[in-house]
């Protein structure tokens, strides 16, 4: 791989949670190696408890690896979210005390940006996620999917070069997830950001991704990297493509044994 195209680089990344009271230390993750290409849509799938969200925390700089190194655009990531990285979590993280517009503008205001410049960023972003007509509404007045779109918009206005998504559609029904996936693909093409998606859903990973990292049961390591070979212009209609079935089939083939192992291990 051309090193200039590598945006995020993980080498020997390991995470061991220290012993708490009488319990033994928990080896959650690694050692992991990964090169994330600039502009690609990369998803991570794996059995429950394999360390997917731990991996996202490490990449985001919200936690430190026990061993190994993570570099984002050549600079080490260590205990602080680097500039250029945006994160959307699985939980509803909209701020209920702020309107949709103020939610989206929050990070920019804290960064001291002028109101005029904020509006120039927030308005088109809300339009892109279909929330422009709800700018004055409060999160309590929105559906779960709309609130998650708001969280994505709030992250996108900061113009991240790497967007980390931790199962952002986990709480939504299947149809909404497919449509949200289409919206996410549109935003990905629009922003040219690299996307690193953590998901439980094999369909979601297969639909959205250029590459999919398949993780083993704990301690999570990559046991396969699947290239989907989808064109950049794609949407949820590819679920009817036979190649989609082949991708999900391959993912499940790799994951079934690991999921059984995770299930047996509690």
């Amino acid at each position: 791989m051309n090193t200039s195209s590598v945006q995020l680089c993980l080498r020997g990344v390991t995470r061991v949670f220290p012993a708490v009271e009488q319990q033994k230390p928990l080896h959650a993750l690694g050692p992991l190696d990964l090169d994330l290409r600039r502009g690609e849509f990369f998803s991570v799938v794996g059995p429950s408890g394999c360390g997917k969200s731990t991996l996202l925390d490490l990449v985001a700089g919200l936690a430190r690896p026990t061993a190994g190194t993570i570099t984002f655009e050549g600079r080490p990531v260590a205990g602080e979210v680097p500039d250029g990285i945006g994160v959307v979590f699985q939980e509803d993280a909209s701020f209920p005390w702020l309107s949709v517009y103020d939610n989206a503008a929050f990070a920019l205001r804290r960064a001291g940006m002028a109101e005029k410049d904020i509006r120039e960023r927030v308005d088109p972003t809300l339009a892109a996620v279909g929330l422009q007509s709800f700018a004055g509404a409060y999160p309590a007045q929105l559906s779960g999917g709309m609130r998650q779109r708001l969280c994505i918009a709030r992250t996108l206005v900061t113009r991240p070069r790497l967007l980390l998504l931790d199962e952002p559609f986990g709480a939504l029904d299947q149809q909404t997830r497919l449509l949200m996936g289409d919206e996410l693909l549109d935003l990905w093409r629009l922003t040219d950001a690299t996307v690193f998606l953590i998901t439980h859903s094999l369909d979601e990973a297969a639909l959205l991704s250029d590459r999919i990292g398949v993780m083993s049961a704990r301690p999570g390591v990559f046991i396969d990297l699947v290239d989907t070979a989808w064109p950049r212009e794609r949407d949820s209609r590819i679920v009817s493509d036979p190649a989609f079935g082949r991708v999900t089939g391959r993912l499940w083939e790799m994951l079934r044994g690991q999921s059984l192992k995770a299930l047996a291990g509690g």
Partner: peptide, 18 residues
């Protein structure tokens, strides 16, 4: 305070007072 809200704040790199 929901975990997601606290983590989002951490991502935004707010000062302790903010």
């Amino acid at each position: 305070v929901p975990r997601g809200v606290r983590r989002t704040a951490a991502v935004m790199k707010l000062t302790p007072l903010q």
